[in-house]
Design a binder for these strands. Structure first.
Length: 487
DNA sequence: ATGTCC
């Protein structure tokens, strides 16, 4: 294995390639999307992991890493890998993440900072009371384990039927909030046990709920922003980031064990890192995991749907009018930890690919199937959550995204370990500093807050710049935090 | 990410 700096090739301002000669077993080159600055800061683990991914059976074109990439479990966070399922392609939990359907939802209001500023503490405090956060938190939706099996099969559609949201929310959720083919018979009792009381909860780590403002100077494409519902300067929006909680975690754990048992003995697959455990997509084990994983997707859509219901209730209480009057419409809800069967052109031929996106956001361009009717001609909204101190972005998918299987970044991407961040910042002081800078934060854990300090992340503007220059997504509007609830 | 080690 040669020295990485000597072998890495710069393809363009934002694309870097590690050829198959780098490591024995690589089936395709690895490509990293980043500016020169981001490359200098890139976690060395990314090169090792993305080239390991390049050895997996069925991988097509490239093993990819997005500009916010960093070291993860098996795959880098920011990893994208498309497996040809008709050519022995595998499915790998490490390419999806433990938190199945970790994702983002963005909601607009017709309020501006002028309306909200004076109420920000009250709003954040009330949201903190009503949206359970932190490790092991449980929700207010009291259902049986049997009913929970319906939730994981029906996703957000279960929520709407039970009064947690509006019919139109479904049109603005990926897969209409319910992915087809989820079957809870593939789910362990243990996963059900961990999940049945966690609907409507935020979780911990980098999961959060944020009140944000679209500042006048941060509209990059005002017309597109308006199409997505952000029509005026200083408009207030709510963005939140969470996943499938203990449920998804247990699904991933269960199937990693299954895959480790059969991978080599039954399928003859040898991998460089046991965290890349996988099975052929077209195998009983691969199909069982795919089906179970879909239950995780649905749990997460339902989770975010119930959280939205609570957010609408709180705004409605504080501003004394119902959420319809406050214009609290969903812009979009999109996963960034998932694997989906999609058809993509590969060297002029349309192929059936299982696209793993792990800390990477699907970014479908204009006129593609699965983009909501409302946005068909402009492309899919892409929601990128930055750190609590800096800001977040609403982007849109573009036609040139074909190069990355229509995938882009998902966030800032950590640049410092949680351990080091805890030593560098003090949660309580950070909270006060941020309050002085106009960002009011509530958190369940001071140490957890320190781990999420803005300085522990890459610069979000750099990440977005790289994604835009590379032509894998386009800026619409930047969103700045004024209030935040952290797990 | 995660009942942050059954």
């Amino acid at each position: 294995m040669a020295n990485i700096e000597q072998i890495i090739q710069q393809i363009s301002d934002t694309v870097w390639e590690i050829p198959v000669s780098y490591k024995e077993g690589m089936r395709v080159p690895a490509r990293i999307y980043a500016t020169e600055k981001l490359m200098r800061e890139m976690d060395d683990g990314v090169y090792d992991q993305v080239t390991n991914v390049a050895t997996l059976p069925g991988i097509t074109k490239y093993a990819l890493c997005m500009p916010d990439g960093h070291f993860g479990y098996g795959f880098p966070i920011g990893g994208v890998a498309a497996m040809d399922v008709e050519a022995g392609g595998v499915i790998s939990p490490g390419g999806i993440g433990f938190d199945i359907n970790c994702g983002m939802r963005l909601v607009v209001t017709n309020l501006t900072y002028k309306d909200v500023g004076a109420y920000i503490k009250k709003l954040v405090d009330r949201l903190y009371e009503r949206v359970p956060a932190g490790v092991g938190s449980t929700g207010f939706v009291k259902i049986s384990r049997q009913e929970f099996r319906q939730v994981v099969e029906q996703g957000s559609q279960w929520c709407i039927r039970n009064g947690y949201g509006w019919e139109e929310d479904l049109d603005l959720t990926e897969e209409n909030g319910c992915i087809e083919g989820a079957d809870s018979s593939k789910i362990s009792e243990k996963a059900i046990d961990r999940g049945f009381n966690q609907i409507g909860t935020l979780g911990s780590g980098n999961h959060y709920l944020e009140i944000q403002v679209a500042r006048k100077q941060d509209f990059f494409d005002p017309e597109l922003a308006a199409t997505f519902g952000i029509t005026q300067p200083d408009q207030v929006v709510v963005m939140f980031h969470c996943g499938s909680r203990g449920f998804g975690h247990q699904v991933a754990t269960d199937y990693l064990q299954v895959f480790l048992k059969v991978m080599e003995s039954k399928y003859g697959i040898k991998i460089l890192d046991r965290e890349l455990a996988c099975a052929p997509f077209n195998s009983p084990e691969g199909q069982a995991y795919f089906t179970a994983m879909k239950c995780g997707l649905n749990m997460s859509f339902a989770n975010r749907q119930v959280i939205l219901h609570r957010i609408r209730e709180v705004f409605s209480e504080i501003f004394g009018t119902d959420a319809q009057d406050l214009g609290m419409r969903v812009v979009y809800d999109i996963a960034h930890n998932t694997a989906k069967l999609e058809r993509h052109m590969v060297d002029g031929v349309e192929r059936n690919l299982l696209v793993h996106r792990k800390g990477a956001t699907r970014a479908f361009g204009p006129n593609m199937a699965d983009v909501p009717q409302k946005y068909q001609t402009v492309g899919q909204p892409v929601i990128i959550g930055g750190s609590m101190e800096t800001g977040s972005y609403l982007l849109v998918g573009v036609s040139s995204g074909e190069q990355s299987f229509f995938s882009t970044a998902h966030g800032s991407g950590r640049s410092m370990s949680r351990t080091k961040a805890r030593k560098t910042w003090q949660g309580e002081k950070l909270q006060k500093d941020l309050e002085n800078r106009g960002i009011y934060i509530r958190s369940t854990s001071w140490s957890g807050l320190a781990e999420e300090a803005g300085g522990a992340y890459k610069n979000i503007d750099d990440v977005i710049e790289a994604a835009e220059l590379a032509g894998i997504s386009k800026k619409v509007v930047r969103l700045s935090p004024i209030g935040n609830i952290k797990g």
